[in-house]
Simulated assay, not measured.
Amino acid sequence: MLSREQIVDTAVEMLDAGGEGALTVRALTERLSTGSGAIYYHVGTRDDLLDTATETVIGAALAARPAGEAATPGDEIRVAALALFDAIAAHRWLATRLTLQIVRNPVGPVTVGIFERIGGQLGALGVPRASWFDAASTLVHYILGAVSQNARIEGDTSGIDPEGDREELFDAASAAWRGLDPEAYPFVHAVAGQMREHDDREQFLTGIAVILEGLTRLR
């Protein structure tokens, strides 16, 4: 018997394979050898299905916990943030849907779940209660911005090859930066090599560390 979980899992597979454009009720019914009525009964409309797929993937990411029993609040935040980063790297359609959820549905399970998972650690970090919302928002905004930058861009992608080779892209950009006038652009010229060699996940974690260090100074 067809279940809601089967429908959602199949929808996620289709989204991973072809993006939002690949997920239609008709394509889903053909994949599952069922009728559209079963989809609407178990999940609802296509938009409902996209929301549910987003909730499912994000929920699994937020369930990640640090290994060991001596985890600090900072460890909890880093693990959750990196799980979100990795989820969007694995599901390239997710960045757009996640942003829509945060903006359009502040009381939905995705928004509430992310803020609770991240913000729930701030008191133990020593952040004053009056600063909790601002601190959590800073972390969430950084996470969303960083993961979205590393995900496929939806909408106008003229001049952008979403399947382009990352190493070639940064090699070319690094060479272009090194070709700039070092007197006019001393900083850009100095970090050109670092841009070519950087690791996205490590850079992401560095940003989290910088924010956490700043938050501890709010005490």
Rank of each mutant, 00 (worst) to 15 (best):
A63Y: 05
L218P: 00
L49R: 12
T10P: 00
A60L: 11
L84D: 01
I208P: 00
L15E: 12
L2C: 02
I160A: 05
G164F: 07
N105F: 08
L139W: 05
L218I: 04
G35R: 08
N150G: 11
L144F: 07
G179Y: 10
D165I: 02
L50C: 08
A192L: 05
V12L: 09
I58C: 06
I211M: 00
G113C: 06
A95S: 14
S148G: 15
T157E: 14
Y41G: 01
D86T: 05
T34Y: 03
D16G: 01
V140C: 03
R78D: 11
E202T: 12
R97C: 03
A17W: 09
L28S: 11
V103M: 12
Q194V: 10
T34A: 06
G37Y: 09
G145Q: 08
R78W: 04
L144C: 14
T29H: 10
V210C: 00
A11T: 02
R152N: 08
A17R: 15
D86V: 00
H42S: 09
G68Y: 08
T54E: 12
R26E: 11
T99K: 00
A209E: 15
P106G: 07
E13M: 11
D48K: 03
E69R: 11
A67N: 11
D51C: 08
H189D: 12
E20G: 13
G59E: 13
T56I: 06
P106E: 14
D134A: 15
D75W: 01
A184T: 13
G19C: 11
V140S: 02
Y185P: 01
T111A: 14
A17Y: 09
L98I: 02
G44L: 07
A11Y: 02
I118H: 04
H42C: 10
A130I: 06
A11S: 15
L125Y: 04
V191F: 12
P73N: 10
L82R: 11
E168Y: 02
D86S: 11
E168K: 13
N105H: 14
F187N: 07
M1F: 09
P186C: 05
S174Y: 03
F85Q: 01
M14I: 14
Q203I: 00
R196I: 01
L144G: 03
R219D: 14
D171L: 10
P73Y: 09
E20R: 14
D9N: 14
G207S: 06
T138L: 15
A22S: 14
A64T: 04
R178N: 09
H91D: 04
E116G: 04
L122D: 05
L205Q: 10
W93I: 01
A81M: 05
A135E: 07
Q149I: 12
Q194S: 07
M1I: 08
D165G: 07
A83G: 08
E116T: 08
H42E: 06
E202S: 11
A130K: 11
V112E: 10
